[in-house]
Amino acid sequence: MTDVLLAAGALPTWSWNPVADLREMWAFPFMVNAFRAGTLVAVGAGAMGWFMVLRRQSFAGHTVATVGFPGAACAALLGVSVSYGYFAFCVAAALVIAAMPRGGRAAGGHESAVTGTVQAFLLACGFLFTTLYHGLLGGVTSLLFGSFLGITSGQVWLLLAVTAAVLAVLAAVGRPLLFASVDPDVAAGRGVPVRALSAVFLVLLGAATAEASQITGTLLVFALLVMPAAAAQALSARPAVSLALAVLIAAAVTWAGLTVAYYSPYPVGFYVTTFAFAAYVLSRGGRYVRERIARPALEPLPAGGAA
């Protein structure tokens, strides 16, 4: 962002005329592509993140997200498109985590030790790839913290295809997945294939994080997954409403982040995480105030928000 605009002259200035500002910003094809890609990514990440928060799989989601970094570095080393690296590594990591034996609920320590080791080892591999591929070293920070520059129309089409596929599969397994997430024991008792659903969910999560990583960077994609979903679940107890809210918040946060990043020298990832965090804090605060006012009212869905 800054590099291009500094080369062209100075940073663009905000004229307090939103229509003219938007028109000026969208006169640049790269900004139009950034908004298209950002919207697609936000929709996919918002929906997948909602289920991730509901299923309490934040750590797995974070690991799948960070694994995108060695994927991208490996792809750069091999000389193929970075997108393939993201998808290959994120989906593979999702499969590894899904294949691991699951203990009871209290055995979280072991499972997360494996997840953490996988994450740290793959990040170390990514570091090795970048040291082997010397030219990339300047690009490490943009791989990790995101950049919305130079998104081509081809990438936008790829993102559109992946988002459509993820949402289609999610719509197909949505009802049983919701059941299995809220109460796995009862769902298993009623004949729902809990384990297979969990694997499908992780693969979808891998695909969604792989596409989001390309905009927000591998370290900050987690913010787009967890925060809009947590905010939405604090706002509404009804699954359909809060799922829609999560997607809306993710999209709004991405748009606001892109717009502000266009007018300032700081990275887009910083603005997206800051706006998302503000939404999370506001909704948690709002829920707290509402509960204080109407204490004897109906209790919210136990899985929603964070008790």
Binding site: R56, A223, Y266, F270
Partner: peptide, 26 residues
């Protein structure tokens, strides 16, 4: 603490880190 609360806080702090990184390098 709860996973979601930890995740939200540290994702934001990491975003802040990206900000300081840019501030420092520029």
């Amino acid at each position: 603490a709860d996973d979601v609360a930890i995740g939200s806080v540290f994702a934001w702090i990491l975003g802040l880190g990206a900000f300081f990184l840019t501030l420092y390098t520029t």
